[in-house]
Design a protein around this nucleic acid. Structure first.
Lengths: 349, 349
DNA sequence: TTGAAAGCGATACCAG
DNA sequence: CTGGTATCGCTTTCAA
């Protein structure tokens, strides 16, 4: 690998100083037309590219953010929702010359609770994707590193963006009510999670808004495996059992609102397997609009989240924070919309 | 964010030179016990951490590799197989102080076919995860950047590692033959892909080895959407139709070998939906041992790939390549094993 | 409009 | 053992 030309070589061949080359490259100071042209020529001929490391040392920024997962990359990678979010995030950052350093929390962290690459100054800030234990968020927050919670939130003043699960709850209940449903039950994981809470609150407010009965029994919650989103087996089992209980008796719900598509789809599968027809006997609504939602039979009525947009806006938030530290904290909720498909029955017909 | 202490500050408070501090930090030259102790003390007190950027500039290495996906992050993130591979990769790299810069090919590339972060020297080498068009691999290869094909391969001398699909084919056919199967058909995507070819070759050799009939009709292949692994819908449809055709008539196969678990599981779902019993009427074998394979009813007999190991060994390959450029090229095949579950019937009973 | 020179933070040579 | 100093590649100030 022949050693790359440095700015010095460009300067030499252009008969000028490295300062002028730098100015041209960064569209800075007023450089004469001719010199500029000459330099650009040499740059093209040499295939010169600035060396980021030199540049970063000088400007004291790495133009890179750390993207952190908890507890490890694997857990998040398995979630198709985040695939799209990442896409939007990466696209926006790339557009402005920024990059992403990837890491799982557990492996990137050894002695300190702070990842090594942050300690050693390889990044300008951290993006925490998805749910993190609040103690960990706290650690980052105290360190005053530019920080973004992407698809998560906490009380403290930290930039964050989530989808608007509250508004979603309202929309879902209205939709169901419009179709004649009056006994609706929601299902969610037990773990502490901002998004779950938000969606439940929206759901309960929706019931109220529509004048429908609702109390703590309107929400089926079961302790999941708090550590891993992938080991949902047992937790789903328990939730499904509860659901089946509810389904017995005269006042059985006619509609189920699941906290996300994964849960919704799994429940539909279980219901069908047990001979309970969806939506005829029980309507089901999801959340996220994962790809699988449309392939389900019946196709799942759900809440569409613009996942790429979630990532894109997230990118802007952390860029702003990193470049203008005293920007006021933003806590955003991305608007969502209900997409009607086949998993909700119209009871009025 | 108070500005971090530099090595200079450590030197000052330790009453010594930055050279000595550096030596202590890097366990280099023989430094006296006392000075060493003193310096370590100050380091601890100050919470000093070397600045990677300064270090990287000097040592002319970034201690970072680019992890590239094609065409974009999203496509790969949706594949649970890679989640595990990443995990092994990251763990091993972290262990030796290396990091991963993440990017999708399409977004990271603008004017040149080479990603910007590589051009600008932000990484020491590239890891291409999964299938890439060979023209792109070629471009990297010609650039003589340290390069690794992870779960992919090409003819050219480029380090690569894949799971041993050939041996898998042998194992699968032997297993089926042992259970009394004599008419076996394999199913795969049409796209050009090293792994697919390898598995098919192994399968055909297996047939031969077991003295079973086998010709080009033993493999059902259909053009998939070459661009995206996620849009398999149509391609699966076509493959399933072909399979159903084969299933009619007196010489119908008794076993199906799918090129991966995703395909196998989808086929099982379709078969069951059409009232064809698995494994009684048709046995099915997969490849990868994805998490879903064990949850399937019947649980899928498949080939277990040690995905983390795939990533771990991959990490070692590129590290070696980056640090010792004249190392001979390695093309590795990771051993695999058949895991017997419930989707294969014993025909001898 | 241009360039000399001062660093950014670290490593490593080489002299003491 | 220890430390002065050159150097990595670049940006930026300041003087010409």
């Amino acid at each position: 690998m022949a050693t790359r030309p440095s700015i010095f070589e460009v300067a030499r061949q252009s008969n000028c100083s490295i300062a002028t080359v730098s100015n041209v490259l960064n569209n800075k100071g007023r450089v004469s037309k001719e010199k500029r042209k000459k330099i650009l020529q040499v740059v093209a001929k040499l295939g010169y590219q600035v060396n980021s490391v030199g540049r970063n040392l000088r400007i004291r920024r790495t133009e890179t953010f750390g993207l952190l997962f908890y507890p490890s990359c694997a857990e998040i990678f398995k979630n198709p929702f985040y695939a799209e979010v990442m896409q939007g995030l990466e696209a926006q950052l790339t557009r402005v010359g920024y990059h992403l350093l990837l890491a799982g929390y557990e492996t990137s962290t050894t002695n300190s609770p702070i990842p090594n690459f942050l300690l050693s100054g390889k990044v300008d800030g951290m993006i925490l994707l998805g749910r993190f234990p609040s103690e960990i968020i706290q650690v980052f927050h105290e360190r005053k590193t530019p920080l973004l919670l992407l698809d998560a939130n906490v009380e403290w003043p930290v930039d964050s963006i989530v989808s608007d699960g509250f508004s979603a709850g309202l929309q879902i209940v209205k939709h169901l009510a419009d179709k004649g449903h009056r006994r609706i039950v929601m299902m969610a994981y037990e773990w502490e999670d901002y998004n779950i809470d938000l969606r439940i609150q929206g759901f309960l407010s929706g019931l109220q808004e529509q004048g429908l009965p609702g109390d703590e029994k309107s929400v089926i919650r079961h302790p999941g495996d708090d550590q891993s989103v992938t080991r949902q087996g047992t937790s789903h089992d328990a939730m499904y059992q509860s659901l089946k209980e509810r389904l017995k008796g005269p006042n059985a719900p006619t509609a189920l609102v699941a906290v996300n598509d994964t849960l919704a789809i799994d429940m539909v599968h279980r219901l069908l397997r047990d001979g309970i027809r969806v939506p005829e006997q029980l309507s089901v609504v999801g959340y996220d609009d994962d790809e699988m939602a449309q392939n389900l039979v019946p196709a799942l009525t759900t809440i569409r989240v613009n996942k790429q947009e979630l990532g894109r806006v997230g990118a802007e938030l952390i860029l702003k924070r990193a470049t203008q530290p005293k920007t006021p904290v933003s806590k955003l909720r991305l608007p969502v919309e209900l997409v009607e498909r086949g998993s909700v029955a119209d009871l009025r017909r």
